[in-house]
Simulated assay, not measured.
Amino acid sequence: MEAEIVGLKFQLESMDTITLEPHYMKGLHAWFLHQIQAYDPELSAYLHDGQGEKPFTLSRLMGPMQWRNSHWLLPARQSYEFYLTLLSGPVIEGMVPWFQQLPKSLTLARQSFRLQKVDLFLPAIAYQDLVMGWNSTKKLELSFLSPTSFRRQGNHYPLPDPRNVFQSYLRRWNDFSGYLVEVEPFLDWIQQCVLIDRHWLESVKTTAGKQGQVTGFVGSVAFALSKKAHDEPDYIELYYALGKMAPYCGTGHKTPFGLGQTRWGWKTGTIHQFLPLQVQFQEQALGQRIDQLTELFLSQRKRTGGERALNICHTQAVILARRELGESLLAIATDLQMPYETAKTYSKRAQKAFKAQAEKS
């Protein structure tokens, strides 16, 4: 049977000292899509614009980084890596020509890494293989190595609620496996029968997302089944298959931009084992700055009630906080999916309000 899912590790070397903006993941994402576009524009368009779940995940760069002057500094002649997973047989087949002629370098913000090699990180298998090899009495332990979050009622939900976790896996399963599962009955079973046996979690704010920040969690969770679960053996089989799929598909949303990186097994320690200290500091600092500015702008309004006022103040805060980090207004407007002139107006109002408060103080 042909491969339908696979995980790859790309190993890089910085050719010179490299400086990257906080939101460099957008550049890595764009590099990958441009690579595919060069030989298969239709496949690239599907990866970028296709309806439903994205058939790939992409991790952040992993390796030695320093946080200086609101940018990442990557020393020369250092090793880095990132992970790419593919969730669709046709996508894997369509990318074979690229794998056979991989580029010798990777360019981010006009700065180059040498692409040393690409290795298998997760074996290339078929979806049917996921249902084999699991002990139905064994706890399912998963670790979340990058901030993980879900969308719930229009907001971010940074907790590994079993229903949310397995719903995110089931969406990918239904889109790509070819074995369609009725959603609500299975999720009802998850809610009734899947327990959190133990966990070690910490929350962190990250710069991914259109609104400048996402609150997510990192850490480890052990899921267990209640006695009632064994009334539905088919669901138990699917439960373990989805757990086995987790490192391939990632968990939650924004997985093509580095969120929700998931691994099998339990990883203990502190948050620094999951995020470098500089990443934790920068991301939490940005989130705190946005919260601080939002409260400031709200306090200056005559009418502070209502969701619209909060949204306006939050958008102003996001733009000003990211401008303080040195991002261009055009890049921010593109990320927030708003016209440049609108972003410019928000930026001017935010700067004026901040200046007025400074003068008052």
Rank of each mutant, 00 (worst) to 15 (best):
H230I: 15
T107V: 02
T137Q: 03
Q101G: 08
H29Y: 12
K352Y: 05
L84P: 00
H71W: 12
T294Q: 04
V6R: 06
M1D: 02
T268Y: 14
M25N: 07
K104F: 12
R322Y: 09
T262Y: 14
P22D: 03
M62R: 11
V131P: 00
Q100A: 12
F217H: 13
A208N: 01
H230Y: 04
R303M: 15
T148N: 06
Q100T: 09
W264M: 06
H34P: 07
Q337G: 08
Q213W: 05
H230F: 05
F113N: 04
L8A: 11
A241G: 06
P276N: 09
Y127C: 00
L28N: 03
A126T: 06
V214W: 02
G260T: 09
Q282H: 10
L170C: 06
L225T: 03
A229K: 15
A124Y: 08
G216L: 11
Y83V: 03
S143E: 11
V221N: 03
E184P: 05
V214K: 00
T17E: 10
A241N: 06
T345I: 11
P256R: 00
P233I: 04
Q128F: 05
N174K: 08
N311M: 13
E341G: 00
H199S: 02
M132N: 14
S59I: 14
A333S: 05
L108W: 00
F32K: 09
Y239R: 07
D197A: 09
P64Y: 08
Y169L: 09
V204I: 14
L187S: 06
D234F: 09
G133L: 02
Q288Y: 05
G265Y: 14
H48F: 01
F176G: 00
E295K: 04
L61M: 02
T255V: 15
V131S: 14
S44K: 08
W31Y: 10
G212T: 01
M25G: 11
A124C: 07
H253E: 00
Y169S: 02
K139S: 09
H314A: 15
P247K: 12
D161L: 13
D119Q: 06
Q153M: 10
P276I: 05
E53P: 13
G260F: 03
F99G: 07
N164F: 15
I36A: 01
G154A: 13
C193W: 02
L293M: 11
I125N: 02
P158K: 04
V214G: 01
T334E: 07
E283F: 03
